[in-house]
Nucleic acid binder design. Structure first.
Lengths: 219, 219
DNA sequence: TGTACATCAGTGAACGCGCGTTCACTGATGTAC
DNA sequence: TGTACATCAGTGAACGCGCGTTCACTGATGTAC
């Protein structure tokens, strides 16, 4: 199916439009996202999107769905990287959420800020959100089994922890956290501090540092 | 100064415009807030606001400032009502935040979502945010002294706890929390659960219930 | 108290803009024979 | 392989709309004498 690219007039306008929208979000923000700009960026006339989306809402729903997929993929990667160390898995999963938000604030916000009004009309969006939440639940279950988290109801833990991470991210993105605070404590540090309130054992100091992407190890 | 109402053509258009904006936020949401609607609602022509605000941003900054004042007032009330019971004070302060957001989601969002771009140009807004944060810090300090909270840096505690409450609220307002979860646990219950992660003693069960506004007491 | 003038809050017409959406169309591709 | 037709992705003009902002003005209030 991928080989079909460029087959028709454009080839894969639908996905090109989604990508264009994501680019605009990254470069100009939520308030400058319009169907006309998306079309222009994809190199088609401003009426072309209507061949693929019934209206603007539908495009946004598609963008949001893709956002959940990407977020899901990132957290899943963090989980799979640390299957043998649940504590680390827990923290890196949260950190993946923070990084996703920081790297593309407008995209993160449109994905998670419930801009889509009638969510039930977009089944793939509903599925994407459910999948992401389900994976998050699995991480929590694993941590409960490992004794990292207390044996509280998973949904209660999930909601509290998600809220903790989400709120921290939102406050930072919206410039609500004073520089006086952010100069004292890195975002990573604040995240680990928040998460450690839920953790039933001492968190090793090295987890307070942002993990390097290289493979170098000391010792 | 209050007696001056109705003195001039309108009397107190500046504040009337702020109130009109708040009404529109409550009834129509953030996306339907325009200078023209605000003016119409206040009963003046659409150019009249320019006698009091240099542009739309300035009006929004004033609305946001007033939002911080109201939020501040609510939390302060919760604090003053429970000076002799720090644990309760802590939880009711958080609950005041949640209630404020729930009662007027759009107003809460515009106040806390950093819509105002050049915040430093609006000193009274900066002052309002600083005051609210300062009061929150005081509550936390009091709880540390009472042994309710651990002796971590106040700013770290403040940021973590604020993030916890804020994230929970945002996820609920944006419809991200599944009904399957909200049917199991009330928002109050989730809030107390989140806060109790920070609390260094057992939280009495009755705090899981929403406090009645009446003065009736059992026993 | 009365008149002349200054101040300034609020008016109403006008501006240019970008928006979402529609519609008759064009023209490239796919399909039947 | 070649022709006729159907399909449908993309075009471009047009629509009506509400927006933020400006500007010359009006008319009520405050002030000086």
């Amino acid at each position: 199916m991928n080989a079909k690219t460029e087959r028709y007039h454009h080839g894969d306008l639908k996905n090109a439009l989604i990508e264009a929208a994501i680019d605009i979000l990254a470069e100009e923000g939520v308030h400058d996202l319009s169907l006309r700009k998306v079309a222009a960026r994809a190199g088609v006339s401003h009426a072309a999107p209507y061949a693929h989306f019934v209206d603007k809402q539908a495009l946004i729903a598609a963008v949001s769905t893709e956002g959940y997929h990407r977020l899901d993929r990132r957290i899943r990667t963090a989980r799979n990287t640390h299957t043998d160390d649940p504590l680390r898995m827990f923290i890196e999963a949260g950190w993946a959420y923070v990084r996703f938000a920081q790297e593309d604030p407008a995209y993160f916000k449109i994905t998670l800020s419930g801009v889509v009004e009638k969510e039930e009309e977009y089944p793939s969006l509903v599925e994407a959100t459910a999948n992401a939440y389900q994976m998050f639940r699995e991480i929590i279950t694993k941590c409960k089994q490992a004794g990292i988290l207390r044996d509280d109801p998973t949904d209660l833990l999930a909601t509290g922890i998600w809220g903790s991470i989400h709120g921290l991210v939102m406050l930072v993105l919206d410039g609500q956290i004073s520089h006086l605070v952010l100069d004292q404590f890195s975002l990573r540090r604040i995240l680990v501090f928040s998460l450690s309130q839920y953790i039933q054992q001492k968190v090793p100091v090295e987890l307070y540092d942002i993990p390097s992407t290289g493979k170098a190890k000391i010792g």
